[in-house]
Design a protein around this nucleic acid. Structure first.
Length: 311
DNA sequence: ACCCAGGTGAGGG
DNA sequence: CCCTCACCTGGG
């Protein structure tokens, strides 16, 4: 299966690099075509996929156009979302710098597991852990031929991980996260956590349910809601967003994550999760450009968020 | 060698 | 509620 889909207001490379998903890699050779961008390989649900962008056209192999659209939220109107969250100079700058960024919708289980593993971790290591788990416990779909990515193994199903000992999980480098992931897998596999059915719940009910899963706290809940269930009103506050928000909206003063989240929901409205993604990339971009290594935190954030503070 | 990382859960104020 | 702290490892 393969084909093309139209993708206005979309930045494939930027979206895949924005810390929402951890199993996509840039392929070696761009597909034929003068203005084609690099090809990426990864997974959309159970299917290994290869995909490349040329202007406003996405060409892909391995899955359906509908799956591609859903995965990258191409069915949503980014300009409309942007207008709704474009309420101050900080977010405005972030929207401009990262135009085309979209919130990805991946499977709730993979999202849940990935963000459980993100605790007190860094992205390179997290990526390695997920890779290791997939190689050892993921299924290999039949007929993985021409579009084989880095790993011909799917992300492990909860049933598979539920059978694995904590010790074996630790051997994948999970450290103290091993019992958390194991407990979550057992909870899902055993039916106590019915991720599929929970898709029908409203935000508050879903939040409450997810929070009961072992190893899942407020931050992970928001990530799963945003990246796994497509809930635009979720607002994960990680260290990067925390810094950015304190700097931009609270004059650098301490605020609890909860307060930051509540402020963001009021301030940005029902699609605040998208604002989060843009601000996250903006804050992280400042670090990648070296700002935080060579200057103080405050000054670098001012570089990342060029206007004066509000609120 | 040394520091630190996209958090959670437990304990106490 | 809010604050503090320990926590497995391996990238940088």
């Amino acid at each position: 299966m393969g084909g093309t889909v139209s993708c206005p207001d979309f930045d494939l490379a930027g979206t895949l690099a924005s810390g929402q998903v951890f199993r996509w890699t840039q392929g070696q050779s761009p597909p034929q075509g003068r203005r084609a961008g690099p090809a990426f390989t990864g997974w959309i649900g159970p299917a290994p996929v290869r995909i490349a962008q040329e202007d406003s056209i996405l060409s892909f192999q391995g899955t359906s156009a509908q799956a591609v659209r859903a995965f990258f939220s191409l069915d949503l109107d980014l300009p409309a979302i942007a207008r709704s969250i474009d309420v101050d100079p900080f977010i405005h700058a972030a929207l401009q710098s990262h135009w085309g960024l979209r919130v990805i919708r991946q499977e709730p289980w993979e999202s849940l597991a990935s963000f459980i593993l993100s605790a007190f971790n860094n992205i390179p290591r997290l990526t390695g852990m997920i890779e290791e788990l997939s190689v050892r416990f993921g299924e290999k779909p039949d007929g993985v031929g021409p579009l084989r990515g880095p790993t011909p193994f799917a992300f492990p199903r909860p049933e598979a991980l539920a059978r694995v000992s904590e010790r074996a999980l630790r051997r994948c480098g999970l450290g103290f996260r091993a019992p958390y992931l194991r407990a979550a897998a057992r909870s899902v596999a055993g039916g106590a956590a019915d991720l599929e059915r929970w898709g029908g719940l409203d935000d508050d009910a879903l939040r409450e349910k997810l929070l009961q899963i072992p190893g899942v706290g407020e931050k992970v809940v928001e990530c799963v809601m945003l990246f796994g269930y497509g809930r635009g009103g979720a607002f994960p506050v990680d260290v990067w967003i925390g810094r950015a928000m304190r700097s931009g909206y609270f004059r650098g003063r301490r605020r609890t994550d909860r307060r930051i989240r509540e402020f963001a929901r009021r301030h940005f409205g029902p699609m605040c999760g998208w604002a989060q993604q843009f601000l996250y990339c903006q804050a992280r971009g400042a670090r990648h450009r070296g700002a935080w290594h060579h200057q103080g935190l405050r000054t670098s954030l001012e570089a990342a968020f060029p206007s004066g503070s509000i609120s």
